[in-house]
């Protein structure tokens, strides 16, 4: 259907069309259309007026009540009932689920608080928090106005601490503690002129007690063996000696 748009309708037709609409609304009697003088001059409006009469005659047939399908009421009621039950079930499941979640959270919280020891019972808990760092670190914590931290000093201090903590073992060893005490300074501080290969070691080994000597001899022996093996490997990797 390709109807004319209202913009294309001449303005002279306006009152007639309004009257036709009023008749179709049921507000005006159909006879009023026939008395319109515009119809004698306008072929379109005359055609619309005739079509209006036709439409008015056919409209009562349009609003004939449709026969309801058999069982429609029962089907609707069953559907509504089933939907209502499903909604109640969904709500119940949601309620039970949320209750279960709440109970689980409460149980978890209770278990957690029961498993955690009280601060009075074990004051030695190791914790990553800064206030639980051992005394060594806490003593070296920078404070405003203190001097900056130096790695060498800290290592020396750590070595001292190790030495102090192992005093029970090292005391019987006597001079062995002096060897440990030289470790930080020999690694990180001033370089010392290389001594003659064997004399200082022999002297130092001779100075320490028998117990310490017994502990250190395997170390020195292993170092010598490792160095000998290193020299052998280097010799074996010389380019002038191809493999056979």
């Amino acid at each position: 259907m390709n109807p004319p748009t209202p913009e294309l309708i001449p303005t002279a037709c306006g009152p007639t069309l309004a009257r036709i609409q009023s008749v179709l609304d049921g507000a005006t009697l159909p006879d009023k259309i026939a008395a319109d003088p515009h119809l004698t001059a306008c072929e379109s409006c005359r055609g619309r007026a005739r079509a209006t009469r036709t439409l008015l005659a056919a409209l009562p047939a349009l609003d004939e009540p449709d026969t309801l399908p058999i069982g429609l009421t029962g089907a609707i009621l069953a559907e509504v009932k089933s939907d209502r039950r499903a909604r109640i079930r969904r709500r119940a499941v949601a309620l039970v689920g949320s209750l279960a979640a709440a109970v689980a959270i409460v149980v978890w919280a209770a278990t957690r608080s029961a498993g955690r020891p009280s601060p009075d019972s074990s004051p030695e808990i190791v914790s990553p928090r800064p206030d639980h760092i051992p005394a060594l670190a806490s003593t070296s914590a920078p404070t405003p106005g203190s001097r900056p931290i130096r790695i060498g000093d800290e290592l020396a201090r750590a070595g001292g601490a190790i030495r102090e903590s192992s005093r029970e073992l090292t005391d019987p060893a006597g001079a062995a503690s002096q060897v440990f005490a030289t470790l930080p300074s020999s690694f990180f501080l001033k370089p010392t002129p290389p001594p003659t290969p064997t004399e200082p070691v022999a002297r130092s080994l001779a100075e320490i007690s028998e117990v310490a000597k017994t502990g250190l001899e395997p170390v020195t022996g292993s170092a010598q063996k490792a160095f000998a093996r290193f020299l052998r490997d280097v010799e074996a990797m010389q380019p002038g000696k191809p493999k056979s």
């Binding site: 259907m1 109807p3 004319p4 209202p6 069309l17 036709i20 609409q21 179709l24 055609g47 619309r48 079509a51 209006t52 036709t54 439409l55």
Partner: peptide, 8 residues
Amino acid sequence: RLELLDHL
């Protein structure tokens, strides 16, 4: 309605 009348 106008479309309908013109269709008729």
